[in-house]
Design a binder for these strands. Structure first.
Lengths: 207, 207, 207, 207
DNA sequence: TATGAATGAGTCTTCATTCAT
DNA sequence: GATGAATGAAGACTCATTCAT
């Protein structure tokens, strides 16, 4: 499918991926300009379409490529034997922080893609997201040791609340990041704050 | 500012507001077409720009107008004397449900506006949202009776967790709504489910 | 449908019709450039699409417009009471000559349109041509006085032969015209030659 | 000129000729895509231009090649000793029918080439067609026995009328063919109808 | 000989905005 | 106030042709 692209000079591949993910993340699918992408990547108009056939092909390639990259990072960095929910969440939080620090543009692309509502790519994205949720996501946010929860509560609902809280916390931190530069943020502090939330939830739902 | 517009026949005002909010909600700022708006509203191209100067002016007017409308609805329907957090959340949940049922298009506009990332209006929207959060929002989600909380917990963090949980729940419900039509949803059921989450959180954080 | 266009300054209408029919006649539908048309007509890119929606709309408008123009000329200049086939063909030949002299570009457009095979407009053209053949064409090349034909021949086949001969003659003359300029052609001579063919066919098929 | 091409594997030559003639016949010179041709022929982009220098070179080669092929078929199948015009036309009609049945794509290419009006190849084609008409064509449609014609008529004009009638008939049959598939056509019937026209013309112009 | 990546001018079409009426 | 004709830059995408390998 994308064999043409995957056979070219890796440095050029990277330039194109960076240019495209940045443009798509900033402007969304419809308003991203292939003109801008080729200008930024330093390639000709025709070449982009030689590689990807059309704008949609480029977008979905970038999506798949980055998704896969993050999936790999996650697989490598999560201790799948650990079944304690709170320990897992600490790991996830730490990893998320690392990823944002290392690949800010691309993290942003993936995040924005979940909100993309251009008719042109909507259904393809939804399909991909359903697959993702049914696989990696599932594995990441379930399969916990239930024996540690208090006995008189609905465990699935408790897990939901923890999930929502962590998402809320992450969004809050990202909002802060927008205003400040990466350097001004103290990762230690953020992680300590996250832990304090996790501790409150542990106190609430664990025996 | 928009005095020209506000002096015209109210029925025409409504036609324009409806046409514009629908178009913006469906396509986002950049992809919304002023052509479509004037066609739907039954007015001429020039008149729209006579009233609002440019597309951005129209967008921000619509945003302010609808925001204000919802603010009024909220003020009228919330019992501001009630300081119990969980009772307040029940009221908010109920009200949200009513609003979605009565003004689906406009609720959608406001919701989408918070995700709008067109460079053209981004900063103006952020400014408005900051103001909002500092005023109405603040009032809605704070000023609670702290005496009912357990004594050894960080009350502000508990309030955050409850807020994030309710946001997560609302988003989950909206996802469901997308697939189903409004009629197929059982409001009773939704509210019961919401209450069960609230009860769990109450158990966790109240004395 | 094309009311926008039909309401503008007739001189501008003419410029656009001339520019478009010339471009389409020379290059065919697909290869005609709307860029060239607007340049030649002295209007902006957007205006053309304001009038005609798209290239196809422009093409079909031009086709209908010119077709109708020629239809009117034919109706005015043919003596419909005359039922003698050979007198009718003399009239048609004379009229054709006049039209080519007065509207060389547009005659060319119509002629080329019958050979157009772009998928984009093929079916629309065929439909129009079927209608035309079923109406004007039919009337022009049928309804003759059969009593003057020799009795032992197939009259319909005789009429066909006369039709094909006149078409062949007209094409031959147009080929000559391409090489020479209009001025160098002697209309008298052409008409005399045509008559000599008609006389031979009359001798062959009339009593 | 095309020595590079003529020295390669004949099977590959054939693949290229078939692919190119099909594409050109279907879309005309300008809209034919060299991309499609190389894809269909199973060769690389560069190789096509290595053989033929450019698109025009390819087109004219194909034209000459097919023209020559048909010229040979004609020479082999026409009885050049027979000087009777009507017998010759019967032979030609029969041969045309055979060729259309055996080489539909390539016959189509030649036919369409005569209507080709792309500026890029127009003059080259016209030149070739003039040469053709001055040679093979001349021989095919002239050099008849004049002694059989009625004495008081212009024999050259009579020959023209017969030529135009046969062309008209052939076009009429091809129109029919477009609607129907080749299998649905009854060759017997077509030839009988052709003969009836020839008989009428014979009656008209022969002693 | 053979490949196919690379080019960039050209294609039609849409758009917010202006301005004479 | 109200109209809608007019603008032209920008959009995605295609194409014949070249050239390093």
């Amino acid at each position: 499918m994308y064999s043409k692209f995957l056979n070219v000079d890796p440095e050029k591949q990277e330039r194109i991926i960076n240019a495209a993910s940045k443009e798509f993340a900033q402007k969304g699918y419809d308003n991203a300009s292939t003109n801008e992408i080729v200008k930024e990547a330093g390639i000709s108009k025709g070449l982009l379409f030689h590689y990807f056939k059309n704008k949609k092909g480029l977008y979905l390639f970038i999506f798949d490529y980055l998704q896969e990259m993050f999936r790999e990072k996650i697989y490598e960095n999560i201790n799948w034997n650990e079944k304690d929910l709170f320990i897992r969440y600490r790991e996830i939080g730490l990893l998320k922080f690392e990823l944002i620090k290392s690949y800010p543009e691309t993290v942003n692309f993936i995040k924005v893609a979940y909100l993309e509502d251009s008719n042109e790519v909507k259904s393809d994205l939804e399909q991909r997201q359903n697959i993702l949720i049914a696989t990696a996501y599932q594995k990441l946010f379930s399969d916990f040791d239930h024996s540690k929860f208090k006995e008189n509560i609905d465990i699935n609902k408790a897990i939901q609340i923890i999930f929502w809280s962590m998402e809320g916390f992450a969004n809050q931190q990202q909002e802060k990041l927008k205003a400040l530069s990466m350097d001004q943020v103290n990762p230690e502090e953020t992680l300590v704050e996250m832990e304090s939330y996790l501790d409150m939830l542990k106190e609430a739902f664990y025996k």
